[in-house]
């Protein structure tokens, strides 16, 4: 069994836990805090033939890696949330309107009704699956022209 002492002013408790979690498969790990700002990590191998010195070295390296990863994650938290929210809701706040308009030289982004339904008397039947979202109407539309003798 080997014991490492870590200063919590340098490595956060969260990064110690994240690192310890990576090693749980091959080692038994126990944490304690004998004094303020110091955490002791007891590492015991599950495999008797394991080189513990090498494992302790790997643990220390992984601790640096995890701390850095958590710091980057914390720094990029706002931008990550903005990307996810804009992907989920299609909203990009504080952008000028011109930037939000699509570049559509071929005119393919026009709704189907604007292109093909010049006849205003067209019968629109909306079934139960109709749903609407912000700015866009997804309307299932079909003609229902019943003729005499038609059963459907």
């Amino acid at each position: 069994m080997k014991t490492i002492t870590v200063d919590t002013n340098i490595y956060s408790l969260r990064s110690i836990f994240s690192t310890a979690y990576i090693f749980l498969d091959d080692f038994y790990i126990f944490l304690d805090q004998p004094q303020e700002n110091k955490v002791t990590i007891e590492i015991k191998s599950k495999d008797l033939n394991c080189d513990l010195d090498e494992a302790v070295g790997r643990f220390k390296n992984e601790l640096i890696n995890t701390s850095l990863r958590l710091k980057i994650s914390e720094d990029n938290k706002k931008i990550r949330e903005l990307i996810v929210s804009s992907a989920l809701y299609g909203k990009v706040e504080n952008l000028p309107k011109k930037q939000l308009e699509l570049d559509d030289p071929e005119g393919i982004c026009r709704p189907w009704e604007d292109v093909h339904c010049k006849n205003t008397n067209i019968h629109k039947a909306v079934n139960k699956n109709t749903f609407k979202s912000d700015g866009l109407n997804y309307v299932k539309m079909f003609k229902c022209e019943k003729k005499d003798g038609d059963k459907n």
Binding site: L13, R14, F17, S18, A20, Y21, L24, Y28, I29, F30, L31, K44
Partner: peptide
């Protein structure tokens, strides 16, 4: 004892 401590570490990680 060791398995208990490992499981405790895992459970605490979930709470952080």
């Amino acid at each position: 004892k060791d398995e208990f401590c490992n499981y405790l570490l895992f459970e605490t990680s979930k709470c952080l």
